[in-house]
């Protein structure tokens, strides 16, 4: 399927890394395919990975925040569209975010440190399955992708970073959530600057409830538990606990004590968004 891709061996030293600077997004995709290059934006997540294994891609394909639609936040009837190269810091301080997602600033205070948030991008955080993933999944975010073929939209819920090939995220659109009730909570190892153990987001749109997680077990919507909560009125509390626990375990959350924590965080967040059990 990717037969025209030349995969280059990794290099040990930084001196062997070549940085390609395409002029427009489609060229970036072409370069990445041709050289087996790695897209690079803020590089705040990838560089620690490379330092740790003392090995780096031979080719980096630099993404340019100046490309139209790749940076900044805009509002239209479809909701908020956030350029993928918008930094986490820009996201946290943007007036539209304060207006529509007032809790996001508090969450972002707990994402990395301020210096890293000035480098790290929204797109990078989603690719890494970071803290934003849980919230954006629960909000039913849609990605706008630039790929080898025509630009396309895709729901974040079905998108898989590991299977995204050379598709490039241009932006992400969150539906107009102003009337919705949103609650999100992060469990880290310490108060700030901790990798997420579990970030849990709960969204109630007045009709339906949505739940998502990210962290040690990976990002994902908890759609079975959602269904149980939305439609399973005949289910007992024990049933719902069992369903959530099973779903988490199935999704890769192996630590039972962490599943217990998520269970309790979910209960708390459900109360926060006004979902009556």
């Amino acid at each position: 399927m990717q037969s025209d891709v030349t995969v280059q061996p990794e290099v040990a030293g930084r001196g062997g890394v070549r940085v390609l600077r395409p002029e427009f997004p489609r060229e970036a995709v072409a370069m990445a395919r041709r050289f087996g290059g790695t897209y690079i934006a803020g590089a705040s997540w990838l560089q620690p990975v490379w330092e740790r294994r003392q090995s780096r891609p031979s080719y980096l394909v630099a993404l340019d925040p100046g490309w139209p639609g790749f940076r900044g936040i805009e509002q239209d009837e479809g909701g908020l569209t956030i350029g993928a190269l918008t930094t986490l810091d820009e996201l946290a301080s943007h007036p539209l975010v304060h207006e529509h997602l007032p809790g996001l600033g508090t969450l972002l205070d707990q994402v990395a440190g301020p210096g890293v948030r000035r480098l790290g991008t929204v797109g990078g955080n989603l690719c890494a399955g970071g803290d934003l993933s849980a919230l954006f999944l629960a909000l039913d975010a849609r990605l706008h992708l630039v790929g080898h073929h025509d630009p396309k939209g895709e729901s974040l819920v079905v998108w898989d970073a590991a299977d995204a090939g050379f598709d490039l995220i241009q932006s992400v659109t969150l539906p107009d959530a102003s009337p919705w009730r949103i609650a999100v909570d992060k469990l880290g190892h310490r108060e700030r600057f901790s990798p997420t153990r579990a970030t849990v987001a709960s969204v109630h749109d007045g009709d339906r409830l949505r739940l998502a997680v990210s962290g040690e077990g990976g990002p994902g919507r908890l759609s079975i538990s959602e269904a149980a909560l939305n439609d399973g009125h005949s289910l007992s509390g024990a049933d719902r606990i069992h369903i959530l626990d099973t779903e988490l375990e199935f999704r890769g959350w192996r630590d039972p004590t962490l599943r217990l924590a998520i269970q309790r965080m979910v209960d708390y967040l459900l109360a926060e968004v006004g979902h009556v059990l």
């Binding site: 803020g42 620690p48 330092e51 000035r118 600057f193």
Partner: peptide
Amino acid sequence: RIGRCGACNVLMDGQAMPACLIMAW
């Protein structure tokens, strides 16, 4: 050297960032 301690902070365009994560290009 992985942006997790702040000891290499510089101001880039006036804002503090870890210099270990900023590449020459």
